[in-house]
């Protein structure tokens, strides 16, 4: 069993607990309005991919707490961290102070856990008009990378350690950001990817995605050709399936298998290993007539290979 310590920081009200609840506790976006502010640090252990446990430290962002983290509790908080997720409220009125705290946190982090990765989420992007979102994000990203230089020790170093994402709990951007985060935390992700590429070739699929079962984040993918594909499709699919999973649970049920076809494609989503779901996509005219039984049989045959891989990753 491997444990990963993940810090979730940012000013109070920036949306840390909301996004954590959506990704890991099956909240729907609207219900997060019921969440109260986090007092000090809330610990959450999330079983991810079965054998990987994420130890989330959701750090309440009020000033007194922040001062505490940076002074008295410095060692306790910033030691042995794999990932720091720092959340910025895009509409914050005290952006200078936010940045100052971010810099202090980054410094303390890299002093105590030099190999940690940092993900900065520019959050609540839904509050920005759609056509201004890219520009706003680029500006914030530039500021954050510049501020990270001192702590990380140089410009190149900063862009290596720190990655920025825009996010909103109201659309699929949240899934994109979190997929990137967990990708960094999975121990044998490259072995899984290689195996998936092999499988894709064998079943003659145009694309295969592997989802973590509880969160529906895409943890690995394999594809034959890039062309004509929506670059945001992974997070969109995550979002679509997760929403559907929530509607099923309202009925007291859960789906086991989904097939969707039209004239141009056929997609099969099925429960795969104990910790994952798989999606196989066949593309091109005529793929709708490919026998579903064949595909499903191939998925079943591949299952044990991936189960073994998961067990190996846990050891």
């Amino acid at each position: 069993m491997s444990k990963r310590k993940v810090l979730l920081m940012g000013k109070s009200g920036s949306g840390k607990t909301s996004m954590r609840s959506i990704i890991f506790a099956n909240y729907i976006a609207r219900d997060t309005s019921r969440l109260g502010p986090t007092i000090e640090v809330e610990h959450a252990h999330v079983r991810f991919l079965g054998n990987l446990v994420l130890h989330l430290w959701d750090c309440g962002g009020q000033e007194t707490f922040m001062e505490n983290y940076l002074q008295n509790q410095k060692d306790q908080i910033f030691k042995n961290v794999q990932v720091l997720i720092y959340v910025f409220d895009v509409e914050s009125r005290e952006i200078e102070r936010d940045y100052r705290y971010y810099q202090s946190c980054l410094e303390s982090l890299l002093a105590n856990s030099p190999n940690a990765k940092v993900f900065c989420l520019i959050h609540k992007m839904d509050l920005i008009q759609e056509d201004h979102r890219d520009q706003t994000f680029d500006e914030k990203k530039r500021d954050i990378l510049r501020l990270s230089e001192a702590g990380a020790g140089g410009k190149d170093k900063a862009s290596e350690v720190v990655q920025c994402f825009k996010s909103s709990i109201w659309d699929e951007t949240l899934y994109k950001a979190w997929s990137a985060i967990v990708y960094k935390l999975i121990p044998n992700v490259h072995a899984i990817e290689a195996k998936l590429a092999n499988f894709t070739e064998v079943v003659e699929a145009s694309e295969v995605l592997l989802f973590e079962r509880a969160t529906f984040l895409v943890i690995a993918h394999a594809e034959v050709s890039e062309q004509n594909k929506d670059v945001h499709r992974f997070e969109k699919v995550s979002n679509i399936i997760k929403q559907f999973k929530l509607s099923c649970s309202k009925m007291g049920s859960q789906f086991e298998q989904v097939q969707v076809k039209n004239d141009q494609f056929a997609a099969f989503i099925e429960a795969f290993t104990p910790n994952t779901f798989i999606m196989v996509v066949l593309a091109g005219p005529g793929s709708a007539s490919v026998s579903a039984t064949t595909i499903l049989m191939n998925i079943r045959l591949a299952r044990k290979h991936f189960e073994r891989l998961e067990e190996a990753g846990a050891a």
């Binding site: 099923c248 789906f255 298998q257 039209n262």
Partner: peptide, 28 residues
Amino acid sequence: DISAIYGSKNDGTSAFDEKSYAEIRLQT
């Protein structure tokens, strides 16, 4: 939504076509 991602034609016509079909199996 899934058809729009993987099954839309480039000519701008709807991804809901004559062959559109979906099947979902539930645990229940």
